[in-house]
């Protein structure tokens, strides 16, 4: 059995390479059928904002790519409730179906995985 990996993505979508790196890691792992979960934390939850139009930035469309996660077999998607609330993001407006977790849920999630990478 492959070791399970939790990827914690905590950078905003267009501020640097980290959001993209977290997503690429999740897509690559999913393509090989590895047990991968992705948690959006802190500014990382801004990746879930609908209506991002990054055309002028000349970068790949992170929001569109994120929506491919379930097809890549990455269906364990989570977001931190505190991060969402403090940033004015309502759960029902997000561009991906994520499970929203409070602190106890976050601790269980971390505890349940063999490895964790925070980016």
């Amino acid at each position: 059995m492959a070791r399970s990996l939790l990827i914690v993505s905590r950078q905003a979508p267009w501020s640097g390479p980290h959001a993209r790196e977290a997503l690429d890691m999740a897509l690559a792992g999913g393509a090989y059928d590895l047990p991968i979960a992705l948690l959006f934390l802190d500014d990382g939850v801004f990746q879930l904002q609908r209506g991002q139009q990054p055309g002028a930035l000349e970068q790949k469309d992170l929001g569109a790519n994120l929506q491919a996660l379930p097809l890549f077999g990455v269906e364990s998607l989570y977001a931190c409730r505190h991060s969402l609330q403090t940033r004015g993001l309502a759960e029902d407006t997000l561009l991906l179906p994520v499970q929203v977790l409070d602190a106890p849920g976050l601790r269980e999630l971390l505890d349940a995985h063999d490895e964790v990478v925070t980016i």
Binding site: L27, G30, K60, D61, A64, N65, A68, L71
Partner: peptide, 15 residues
Amino acid sequence: REFQLSPATRPLVRY
């Protein structure tokens, strides 16, 4: 058009 990326084999099959 939808996802702005090329799928690997597994997601291609699924899609």
